[in-house]
Design a protein around this nucleic acid. Structure first.
Lengths: 216, 216, 216, 216
DNA sequence: TATGAATGAGAATTCATTCAT
DNA sequence: TATGAATGAATTCTCATTCAT
């Protein structure tokens, strides 16, 4: 029952859109901070500076709101990914570029990580119901496949690399470090989020992936 | 006096221990399934088949119970890790062995992953307060450092590898894949948990790490 | 000025009338289905296909809307009753005719029953405030008094029958059966609304009243 | 999930039972006064002088509470009905006795009427789910059948009278008058609940039914 | 050690109603 | 006349926690 904004009445329409965006941003922050179970609709309303009732008016309930937040989060990262133009770079640079992007995106959008964790805790049922999910079937995989293929043809990359697995590995090397930085820091007794540590991580990650891919 | 008191003190103690273990197991499952925020004390009592009041009797409150669960989870994996005896193997085999162990442990203990995610969502404050946390400072790092050093000396591994980063990478390659399998499956439209896919993942992971470490 | 004003004043009025009627019909159905307490203004607007705000524009609030619905319901049944022309029939036929009418009207207008029940739950305060209520002081009572008197004079009816009580009895025999058909069906384990059962009921009702009224 | 009170611990048990009864009585009054839709759980708790949470503890939700109230109401009237011992009286007296009982019971228990109205507004779904409902299949019907049969054999009652219809008629003559007394009073401009009017009603009702049944 | 009863403070959601245009 | 946006006050229900025994 999403509002369908119809043309007439520009002013009002803009308000409706703005309200929805404000709610989405507030919800994203709240969900990111507390997870789906720990998030409070009251707090979302407060953060948004809007009446709680309005949240239900536009998003029906907490679950649907979470779904909307999730879809937006995906849309956002995909949009950025598309700007990378990896195919215009030489294979090694392209992979490096993708890793930097991934790393920096996660750093700049820590909420993305916690949102995904929440989504997975709930077995991604918020994506199942979402038509958008399918559409998100990231074209980055195809791009990456292209990069790998070219690297292999040019003799710089090994062959037989599954682009999905590689993509997951790149993401995983960054994601896990950041997602679990608190427990890891506690256990290893060193602050993994210190600037120096962060730089080292990106460097290590890149070494791992390029070390693996490179044909001596 | 209407009470019918249990016999010997020892048996009573054993009962008490058993109750605590039962509660911990029930709590672990509940926290794993719903996260800290979504877990319900009532459900934990139900799962344990014990009165809710007992939970408070033994663990004070929900937070402390979570902390206890978390500590146990760490203790369990560390205990298993210690059995690996990596230093008795040649470096490449040792790394391979560690990866297999990590992968299989996560697969066998999916609750470990969600527990850690919950702990991180709460910025690991449950570990900060825990004296146990320090003690968990994994000796596996030192072991891994030994393996790497030997590999370097024997000329099979590259030098300059930080064992902590390597450990995190190994964990991350496995963890992220499993932790995010629901969203990844939804997005890539393939079931990442199918037996075949799982075997492929371990193989890929190993290739990545050994490919990176190996000196031509 | 972005408004596109409807043409002639007359049409506008007709629109206004139509809107009011539409709202009244929707409200009648909603109140009948859910009672005053269970009725939802939102649903009334939906049923009417009109903006909720219009309901307040025309009827002030939910209570006043209910009152309007109730008055209409009374007006409707009274209008029909007046068409019966009972005085033109012989006494027994007149009574029979009244019973048939009552029975069939309740059957055709089940909402009338639930509306009255709601009104009574609220101690008929919606009628007290209504000037119309007085006007509804059913002329059917006088008519019925006439019928009874003539029957007595003609020696076919017993004397001493209070027309109000008789009227209430006729209504009650029909009303209770229909109003409580769900609980009665559940308890007696037979469907009181099946066509056959309905026919039997009218027959029984008529027997009771005419059996009572008839002399010898 | 109704509490099942087990033997041990008499004191506590009694408290639990008392709490449940208190809640039921408070709920009965609230539902009777406002209907299911208009009843407020808060008010029930207040009336009962007990914590609102306890209502949910014992009755799960508002609907189930209503169902429990309804079952109790039926049980109560059936219990009284069974004490009538109609078969020990001569047929006309038995019928008269039943009518008096019905009339007086409704007068003494006005909540019974509004509860039934609420139940019917909701299409008796609260009885459908109730196993008790079946058991309530009033034995009064069989008793009434016996009375009618004996009356016929003794030549004082007409034959061919369906006891269910007769029962419904007796109930209806009383029920409708009381259930709708507010609207009827408003419309006829006379107070139907005044003592005098009440006495007249019982007298009229009895005349109708016995007049109908009597063989000249 | 163990447990059923009880509670206060929320939490999500609903609802009649009003605003602004 | 008509409508989408917005709101405050409930309302049902939940939850961690404590009481009393």
């Amino acid at each position: 029952m999403a509002r369908d904004p119809n043309p007439a009445g520009e002013e009002r329409l803009r308000d409706a859109d703005r309200s929805q965006s404000t709610i989405l941003a507030a919800a994203r922050d709240e969900f990111a901070e507390h997870g789906l179970g720990g998030a409070r609709v009251d707090r979302i309303a407060e953060r948004a500076g809007l009446n709680k009732r309005l949240i239900y008016y536009y998003f029906e309930d907490k679950e649907k709101l979470f779904q909307a937040v999730l879809e937006h989060a995906y849309r956002d990262i995909r949009t950025e990914e598309l700007k990378l133009r990896l195919l215009e770079l030489d294979p090694a640079t392209a992979v490096r570029r993708l890793m930097e992007f991934t790393w920096n995106y996660y750093l700049a959008h820590p909420e993305f990580i916690t949102l995904l964790n929440s989504a997975n805790l709930h077995k991604a049922r918020h994506l199942d119901e979402s038509e958008t999910a399918r559409a998100l079937n990231s074209p980055v995989i195809e791009t990456l496949a292209g990069v790998l293929e070219r690297g292999r043809r040019e003799g710089v990359f090994r062959g037989g690399v599954d682009p999905v697995h590689l993509y997951v590995s790149i993401a995983g090397l960054a994601y896990f470090y950041l997602s679990n930085s608190y427990t890891l820091s506690a256990i290893f007794g060193r602050d993994l989020l210190a600037p120096r540590a962060r730089a080292e991580r990106l460097s290590h990650m890149t070494d791992v992936i390029l070390g693996y891919l490179s044909r001596s």
